[in-house]
Amino acid sequence: MARNEQLIRQHKLLQLLEFSRFGRTLEELRLDLIADLGLTALHERTVRRDVEALQAAGFDIQTDTVERGKVLKLGQATTGVHEVGISASEMIALSIGRELLYPLVGTQYWRGIESFWNKVQETVPDGVFDHYARYRKTLHVFGTPSKSYAEHEGMLKTINRAIVEHRVVEIQYESVGKPMTKRLIEPYGLAVYQSSIYVVAAAHEIEDPKERLRNWKLDRFRKATALDEYFKADELDLSKHLGRSIGIFSGDEATMVKIRLGGRAAAYVREDPWHPEQKLDPTDDGGSILTVPVSHPREVLPKVLSLGSDAEVIEPASFRDAVSEAVAKMAAKYQQS
């Protein structure tokens, strides 16, 4: 048995029973577990033992006989623990966060978000909800990409299971402008960056520890299969790893890039910082020198270009050359037209 497999199944069982208003038969639970956890097989006896273990642990799982057979459902002693005490301002904050996560519609994450949101609406007193509804109309959320990961739900389940069990995953990956390739990855976690999901995983065939870990964009996955091969996970602080740079190309070490900003550009960057560790040093002409950690020129390029002639990369030379080359190609295209 893979490490924590029983715990994972039992946690998922509780979720399935929680979402089921009219209960589930053992066979329905078995099929749901296979689908949600990406299993190849699961015996009904195993599901029964998991249910019995949860009952022994104190969860109020009751049985009832209906037209389709004997079903299992959560009793009041279990469902009562989910009552939520929340204020109108907390509901507003929660609803804003929910709308910012629209790209997750169709995934298991979105079902969790919607399930909790529905519980909140059903639990709060009418006066609190009326107060929330009145003030929520004054605040609107825009700018989230019109994309969805519904078609990737199956792959997400496979990858989530592989992360927990430390399983190697075979993927078919198609980078933009490149042919599809078959790769083996060792997944450590998931990251949501600018409404896109990335899989933080090591490339199985690469041995250099500084080169192995990469962020793979889920949009480019065409297929993902968890193999019966396990990897030894390295100690990794994902938050630290992903926070080293201004973008998603995080690595072991970021490069400190210096950018000369005019007064208006410096004001924009001060209003909307690029990174928590950025530094803005004022210059005599009213502008600033921005110093910010960057892992790849492609991270800084769109930000610098968005500021136009009011921003200039000073160093290092490799980053300056990358921006210079992009600007030259753009200028050539506009001159041709």
Rank of each mutant, 00 (worst) to 15 (best):
L242N: 07
K210T: 12
R220A: 03
S239P: 05
A226E: 11
Y230C: 07
L227H: 00
D228F: 08
R220D: 00
R212H: 07
E253Q: 13
K217V: 15
D237G: 05
L218I: 09
K210H: 12
E253H: 09
G247M: 08
S239L: 14
P209S: 02
D234P: 01
P209E: 06
L218Y: 06
P209Q: 04
R212I: 10
D237W: 10
G243D: 02
E253D: 10
R212E: 08
D237T: 07
E229W: 11
F249H: 13
L227S: 01
D252G: 13
F221I: 07
K217Q: 15
L238M: 12
W216H: 06
E211F: 09
G247F: 11
K210W: 09
K232F: 04
Y230Q: 13
H241V: 05
E229K: 13
D228N: 14
R220Y: 04
G251P: 00
D228I: 04
W216N: 03
D234H: 14
A226R: 12
R212A: 15
D234C: 11
R222T: 04
G251V: 00
K217G: 15
I246L: 06
R244P: 02
K217T: 13
T225Y: 02
F231M: 02
P209H: 05
F249W: 14
W216G: 01
L213E: 00
L242T: 04
R222M: 12
E235N: 12
L242K: 06
G247K: 10
L213W: 01
D237R: 03
R222Q: 14
R214N: 12
A233S: 09
A233Y: 02
R220P: 00
K232M: 06
A226M: 14
K210Q: 13
Y230E: 13
D219R: 06
T225V: 15
D219Y: 11
D234V: 14
D252K: 03
E211Y: 10
L227Y: 03
N215E: 08
R244I: 11
A224N: 04
L236K: 08
D219S: 10
K223V: 04
D252W: 10
L218F: 09
D234N: 12
E229I: 06
E229C: 03
E211A: 15
G247E: 07
F231L: 06
E211W: 04
N215A: 14
I246H: 03
P209W: 03
S239D: 15
L218N: 01
L238Q: 10
L213H: 00
D219G: 02
A224I: 01
L227R: 08
F221T: 01
R244S: 11
K223H: 14
A224F: 01
F231N: 05
R212C: 09
P209R: 02
Y230L: 14
L227I: 00
I248Y: 06
D252S: 07
G247V: 08
L238G: 07
G243R: 02
A226V: 11
S245M: 01
S250V: 03
S239V: 14
L236T: 10
K223F: 12
E229Q: 14
L236A: 05
R220K: 07
K232G: 00
L227W: 02
